[in-house]
């Protein structure tokens, strides 16, 4: 699948079939996350970690403490930032900001990989961090930044409205149009 196709055709999937996702596919998705860029290549210090939730009973509890989690998602991956390691290696800015950005970049890679494998995925931030940490026994210095639900899609959402490119792009100076009319 071409990158451009994957970017344009990917949708947030909120309805899934019950069919389980194979181990090999999960591993490919995780690899895509691992290969994402990171600030100062912090990832090599283990500042970005992933927790995969496959156990149906644990997934059910996660769903109950995550108002934004699709009801039928069979699997979830939490992209987590190890803030302690980030602070020790790269300081306060890395701990408070860059780790979150790094997780977001990994998640985008994972979404595109899932799509290219014929799977559906959805990024979820509407979960109780306190509850998720307690359920998954995530240590205090590690923060679950984003949840990605994954499964075989049971819906085909229409593309959402997107703002026109000319409204959000400028040339050389903020406010100077990149795309001139006529």
């Amino acid at each position: 699948m071409e990158v451009w196709d994957a970017i344009r055709r990917r949708r947030s999937i909120r309805k899934y079939k019950s069919q389980p996702v194979g181990e090999e596919l999960v591993q490919k998705i995780l690899e895509a996350g691992r290969w994402a860029p990171s600030a100062s290549n912090m990832q090599m210090w283990g500042t970005r970690e992933f927790v995969v939730v496959k156990d149906a009973k644990i997934m059910e509890i996660i769903r109950k403490v995550s108002p934004g989690c699709p009801k039928t998602a069979p699997l979830a991956i939490f992209a987590c930032s190890n803030r302690k390691r980030a602070y020790e290696k790269c300081g306060k800015f890395a701990r408070d900001y860059l780790t979150t950005v790094d997780c977001a970049m990994a998640v985008e890679n994972m979404l595109l990989m899932a799509h290219s494998l014929g799977l559906g995925a959805c990024t979820v931030k509407s979960f109780s961090s306190v509850a998720v940490k307690q359920i998954l026994e995530i240590p205090e210095n590690v923060e679950p930044e984003l949840m990605v639900t994954i499964g075989y899609p049971d819906e085909k959402p229409a593309p959402p409205p997107k703002i026109a490119l000319e409204k959000i792009t400028y040339l050389d100076r903020y406010g100077d149009k990149l795309f001139k009319k006529g």
Partner: peptide, 8 residues
Amino acid sequence: FLAVSASG
């Protein structure tokens, strides 16, 4: 659901 939503 209500408790975690209140937090969110």
